[in-house]
Each structure stands twice: as structure tokens, then as C-alpha cells.
Amino acid sequence: MKYSVLVEVRLRPGIADPQGSTIERSLSTLGFDGIGGVRVGKSVRFGIEASDEATARAQVDELCARFLTNPVIEDALVSIEAA
């Protein structure tokens, strides 16, 4: 089976995000009020072939832990769907 994968790499809660803070500060200048909690991350998309979704997810989880994220400061949100 082919699956398409979206990995969202996010800074862990509590890790300072100067990019997010800078964007948030500029919002009121642009007239966007009431927006808070801005966090900037990365997204990585790719395809994977695996026998089933659980197998695909296990491989992607390992890939995230070993390479796509630095677990000291980041975590990952993984979405998988049949391609």
C-alpha cells in the first residue's frame, strides 16, 4: 500500500519561539487583534510504501525520533492517509 505522510515538526511547549513571538507582535500593527499563541514550525511531506498503516506509522515515528525532530526541543504530529 502507498500512503502519503505529513509530518508537522513543532517546538515543544515551553521552548522559546522567537519567530512566533515576532509574528505575534506584528499582528496588532496590521490590525489583526485577538490572536495569540503563535508558534512557527516546519512541515515535511513524503510518500511511503508499507504493508499496512500501522507499519507505515511505526516507520515514520522512528524517522521522526531519529532524524526529522530533535527531541530536546521539538516534537512531531504525524498524519497518514492512503495515497
Partner: peptide
């Protein structure tokens, strides 16, 4: 070595 280097505080 432990820990990580993140973006400078003042970006």
C-alpha cells in the same frame, strides 16, 4: 553532548 542549540533569543 546533551541539550540543543536553538535560535538566538532576539532572532
Amino acid at each position: 553532548l546533551p541539550g540543543a542549540l536553538q535560535k538566538n533569543r532576539d532572532l
